[in-house]
Design a protein around this nucleic acid. Structure first.
Length: 640
RNA sequence: GCCAGCGUAGCUCAGUGGUAGAGCAGCGGUUUUGUAAACCGCAGGUCGUCGGUUCGACCCCGACCGCUGGCUCCA
């Protein structure tokens, strides 16, 4: 007998070699029915439900309700899809077909180009496989025999996979279906194909074998699967909702920005979008005042000598734009840091002056490969709420703490109330010595520890000149967005030979902290458009109030209302057109106006406006003064 | 950059190898209106660009540009 511990601490004695499914059956018939596999001893790896339990252990039974169970379902769906594809196109070669957080995919090598129509055909074939409800059988196989079999079947990708495995590892295949579809797989899977209750194929896309762009291009078919139809429909519904908030769609509808083929991947902010853009800048400028930053304005185009000195020429050239004139070559700046290093170095500094915090809303240009750009979230020209802090070693902790404090204040203003934090370490393409990198990474770790911040490590994801802390927010749809970054850099000060006079009258090297909170304003705008679904908080709304008159007889009064609101600095417009009020209200609501002020004879009589807030909330009549005051208060408080 | 898809009026979208259509927006009238679309009329497009096939191309073919979904890359 062995002892198996359940998640709640209960212990059960069972015979050595009892299978997971039998163990579950011992607890309850319902649990046995729902069991898809198990995680042993806290491992994240799921074992098959038929695998025997050999030793004392803790166990967590995996059902469809858990995240792990969902992966089992999706992985099984991926096998069923591969089976269906092979039934339709027997010459198809299979690469890999894992589950993902969104669903599953299978990479296939097939001459026939899969179209949207084909997805329907594959789905129909999958339904047949599911209806057959044949069991998923696990078989361990011998390496050489398995290689032979896959070679014979022409499954070159499977062969390559096996050849890459450790020869001592056990190989397993899973088999299901009337055609005995078999795939190299660690598993586990659902007990039989009939357990797949709800799935849908989403799209087909290109991918590279093993993610290597020099290798074979494969077709990747994406699908998703859920334990029930209801959950699938909910997922599809959420996708629709996300589509409705797509910043590219709203940007066009709300006249915020546009693109033009003459400037690929470079936005034009229209008057309304520029209002939001400038409000964001104003907001950050206020914070800069609070936190002791000095704003600078720096050149756009600088001699390549500068970029050679900073390391950009070596490590960042592929992402830069260059131009030649007056017998010299120049690079358009992709980052502000070198210009700030020049400013720092332009005059002798004392240790008493530090820290020096230089902020810059300079426009940056980075060449992005044509296929990677997207709306406002990945552009070739953008502006960061960028700043560089030059400080002494002993100031690093406090400076980073202050940045984190400021960052939290900023994010709260937009309703981003929980964060995920990553520490990114040295990348392959980097400058600086090992010691310096170690020192910098330790500096960041210490700062995180001092602030009691939990974080995950992103190996090799740092900037070329230093490690960084990345701040990820969750938007209204709980999607993750990386916004802020704090980077600790000992390299740039060295390359630019930056110094300060220390108390002992000697020279010391300052540290440079690169930091941005909103990240790029372009990207940030894209994110908040989707976060707020275009319903901006009052302080950001391009037009804050629309005055609507009921008929011409209140036109003059309405113009007076507009004028007095304008006087208060409120962004107001009006709909004086001679049409019915219902239509004008509708237009205002579609344009996401935060407030609508209706004036008819009653209001004209009493010096009032009838106020409607976003979403059709009727706030009733109010004097023009009170209304204006109410707006001013909300704006100044940056109320969400 | 690679794979696939897409590109018709300002917007959303129909459409066919015989030189284009709707709704909304716009403009002009009529209507003077009380909280999500008043009515009538007018105008608006070398069908992304260039080339080819064809008696004839918006439609078929090719190249290019742009966009979208992915891959790779990535603040």
């Amino acid at each position: 007998m062995i002892t198996v511990t359940l998640p709640d601490g209960h212990e059960r004695q069972v015979a050595r070699g009892t299978s997971v499914i039998d163990f579950a059956a011992g607890i309850g018939v319902g649990l046995a029915k729902a069991t898809l596999g198990a995680c042993l001893n806290g491992s994240k790896e799921i074992v098959d439900l038929r695998s025997p339990i050999l030793d004392d252990c803790s166990i967590e039974i995996v059902t469809a309700k858990s995240k792990a169970g969902l992966h089992v379902i999706r992985h099984s769906a991926s096998h069923i899809m591969a089976d269906a594809i092979l039934r339709l196109w027997p010459d198809c070669k299979l690469a890999i077909g894992p589950s993902t957080d969104q669903g599953f995919y299978y990479d296939i090598d097939l001459d026939h180009k899969i179209t949207e129509d084909d997805l329907g055909r594959i789905e129909a074939e999958m339904k047949k496989v599911i209806k057959e409800d044949t069991p998923f059988e696990r078989h361990t196989v011998e390496r050489e025999a398995s290689l032979d079999e896959f070679r014979r079947a022409g499954e070159i990708y499977k062969v390559e996979l096996i050849e890459g495995f450790d020869p001592d590892d056990e190989l397993s295949v899973y088999r299901h279906g009337t055609t005995a579809f078999e795939d190299l797989c660690r598993g586990p899977h659902v007990p039989s194909t009939g357990h797949i209750k709800a799935f849908k194929l989403m799209r087909v896309a290109g991918s590279y074998w093993r993610g290597d762009e020099k290798r074979q291009v494969l077709q990747r078919i994406y699908g998703t699967a859920f334990p029930s139809k209801k959950e699938l429909n909910q997922y599809l519904h959420n996708l629709e909702e996300a589509k409705k908030r797509d910043h590219r769609k709203l940007g066009k509808e709300l006249e915020l920005f546009m693109f033009h083929p003459t400037a690929p991947a470079t936005p034009f902010f229209l008057p309304k979008g520029a209002v939001i853009y400038n409000e964001l800048v104003n907001f950050m400028r206020e914070k800069y005042l609070d936190y002791g930053y000095d704003e600078v304005v720096t050149p756009q185009i600088l001699d390549v000598e500068l970029w050679k000195r900073s390391g950009h020429w070596d490590k960042y050239q592929d992402n830069m734009f260059f131009t030649k004139f007056d017998k010299a070559e120049y690079g358009v700046k992709p980052m502000n840091c070198p210009t700030h290093a020049l400013i720092y170095g332009s005059a002798l500094k004392s240790y008493k002056q530090l820290p020096i915090r230089l902020a810059d809303f300079g426009r940056l240009h980075r060449y992005e490969r044509s296929g990677v750009t997207a709306g406002l979230t990945r552009v070739r020209s953008f502006c960061q709420d960028d700043a560089h802090i030059f400080c002494r070693d002993d100031q690093i902790g406090e400076e980073i703490s202050q940045v984190i404090k400021m960052l939290n204040e900023v994010y709260e203003t937009f309703g981003f109330d929980h964060l995920k934090i990553y520490l990114s370490t040295r990348p392959e393409k980097s400058v600086g010595s090992d010691e310096v990198w170690e020192k910098a990474e330790e500096g960041l770790r210490n700062a995180l520890a001092e602030n009691d911040i939990e974080y995950e490590v992103n190996e090799g994801d740092g900037a070329f000149y230093g490690p960084k802390i990345d701040f990820v927010v969750f938007d209204a749809l709980e999607r993750e967005w990386q916004l802020g970054t704090v980077q600790l850099d000992f390299t740039m000060p060295e390359r630019f030979d930056l110094e300060y006079v220390n108390p002992g009258d000697g020279k010391s090297r300052p540290v440079m902290i690169h930091r941005a909170i909103l990240g790029s304003l372009e990207r940030f705008m894209g994110i908040i458009i989707e976060h707020f679904a275009g319903n901006f908080p009052l302080w950001l709304a391009p037009v804050q109030v629309r005055v609507i008159n009921i008929s011409d007889s209140q036109r003059e009064y309405a113009e007076g209302v507009v004028a007095s609101l304008k006087k208060l600095g409120i962004r107001v417009d009006a709909a004086y057109a001679n049409t019915r009020i219902g239509g004008k209200i509708r237009d205002a609501r579609n344009a996401r106006l935060p407030f609508i002020a209706v004036v008819g004879d009653r209001e004209k009589e009493n010096g009032q406006v009838a106020v409607q807030a976003l979403g059709g909330v009727d706030l009733g009549p109010s004097s023009v003064e009170d209304f204006g005051l109410m707006l001013k208060n909300k704006i100044e408080a940056r109320e969400i």
